[in-house]
């Protein structure tokens, strides 16, 4: 069972990483407009040739 010594910290660390990522995304306003974000992804901006 000594493998638990590694596995539990790894599990907790990965979970914590997810938590941190969520808190960061919440703070940076990524949940403010879910519907708009799904459309913006498809917006290519203007179609003029590069200078």
């Amino acid at each position: 069972m000594s493998i638990l010594v590694y596995l539990i910290p790894i599990a907790l660390f990965l979970g914590g990483l997810g938590l941190a990522a969520f808190l960061w995304s919440l703070k940076s306003g990524q949940y403010d407009d879910l519907e708009g974000a799904s459309w913006r992804m498809l917006d290519d901006g203007d179609d003029k040739p590069a200078d």
Partner: peptide
Amino acid sequence: LLRAVAVAGFASAN
């Protein structure tokens, strides 16, 4: 509240 939900969710899952 949202942050608290996230923390509680994380803790309860683990």
